[in-house]
Amino acid sequence: MLTINPIHAFSDNYIWCLADHENHRALIVDPGQADPVVKHLEAEGLVLDTILVTHHHPDHTGGIARLASLYPDCRIVGPADSPFKGVTEPVQAQDLVTWQNLSFRVFHVPGHTLDHIAFYSEGPVAGRPVLFSGDTLFVCGCGRLFEGSPAQMRKSLDALRQLPDATAVYCAHEYTLANLRFARHWLPADSELKAFEAHCQDLRDRGQPTVPSTIGAEKKLNPFLRWDDRNLVESAREYASQRGLACATDDDVFAATRHGKDNF
């Protein structure tokens, strides 16, 4: 049986551990710190054999060198064209990465960074497909555009939006309540967002993560996946008109929404 569990790092990072308990093997996603990973593996009786890297930022890669020294047979799978040079198995769009009985398809999703990739498997894991989205797609949010353009990011998110609705979205940060504060500001009449915010606040009050979400939920709730939603478009156009921004295309709507979040 395969399980996925979060390992907490820094103030709000999630390092994901995909574990095969029968064979005592573990796959880790984006280990920005080594110590919490080592403690988790030892507590669970697991041996690390694979690390997946979504992009080069230090809060996703900072623990890799130490983990590689502790688990020398561990392969490190990550973007082929990246400032991070610790990858031992470079991959690019549409490559398949196998682990145990799973196959992960690689998506190139530039926007947050130019090297960003995501890993998708039909699984199932706990009965559903899984997506490790890094900092591209968050619960009710998306990554800030440090390197890519709005058009690149919207295209990346559109590719993820095509995945099955049941796909569990495992992102790398607990940003949900902050994302929802913006989403509720942008779409104040959206009753589903209001109800979801209350649900997520309850989870956090009980010390529980709001991750994973699902692609289906994100399509309904996430403003950064709703560039073709009438209500979202109206909010983006109003915002853009007040600031002299273009808002004629899907890319413009997305860019105005991202601009709104950056300045919220």
Rank of each mutant, 00 (worst) to 15 (best):
H173P: 00
Q92Y: 09
V109K: 00
Y170C: 09
R243D: 10
D135W: 07
L160N: 05
K194N: 04
R204S: 05
R181F: 12
D250E: 15
E42R: 13
W186R: 05
P36F: 08
A80G: 04
D135Y: 07
R66H: 04
V38N: 07
F146S: 10
P164M: 12
A246H: 07
T98Q: 12
A159P: 00
P58I: 13
S235C: 07
Y175G: 07
P188V: 12
L2R: 13
Q162T: 06
H185D: 08
A166E: 14
F264S: 11
V109C: 14
V38Y: 02
D35Q: 14
E122D: 13
W186D: 01
K220L: 15
F196W: 13
T98N: 08
A198H: 10
L203M: 12
A93E: 15
P209W: 02
T113L: 04
I76T: 02
G148V: 05
F84G: 02
T61M: 09
S11D: 14
R230M: 11
H259A: 14
V87P: 01
G260C: 10
L221I: 09
L232R: 05
L137Q: 04
S69F: 06
Q92N: 10
E174C: 03
S235L: 03
S82T: 12
V109S: 04
D158Q: 13
I4L: 15
R204F: 10
P209G: 10
V233I: 15
G45L: 05
Y175K: 04
F119T: 03
P110R: 04
F138Q: 01
Q152F: 02
N23W: 07
V47A: 11
T61I: 08
Q152T: 06
V91R: 09
L52I: 05
R161G: 13
L193W: 08
F254G: 06
C74W: 03
Q208V: 12
Y239R: 06
E42G: 04
I15P: 01
A236G: 02
C247L: 07
D252R: 00
H55I: 00
V97M: 06
E174S: 07
C74M: 05
G32S: 07
A168S: 09
N5V: 07
L187F: 04
H112S: 08
A178F: 10
H116G: 02
A9M: 12
P83D: 11
D250Q: 15
G244R: 04
R243H: 13
A195I: 03
I76A: 03
V91D: 09
L225V: 03
D205A: 15
L18F: 11
Y14G: 00
E218K: 06
N179I: 04
R161A: 14
F119Y: 15
H40I: 00
G63V: 06
L70K: 13
H173A: 11
T50V: 11
P212Y: 05
L187V: 01
G63W: 02
L225H: 08
W186F: 14
D262C: 12
A151W: 00
T176A: 14
E22A: 14
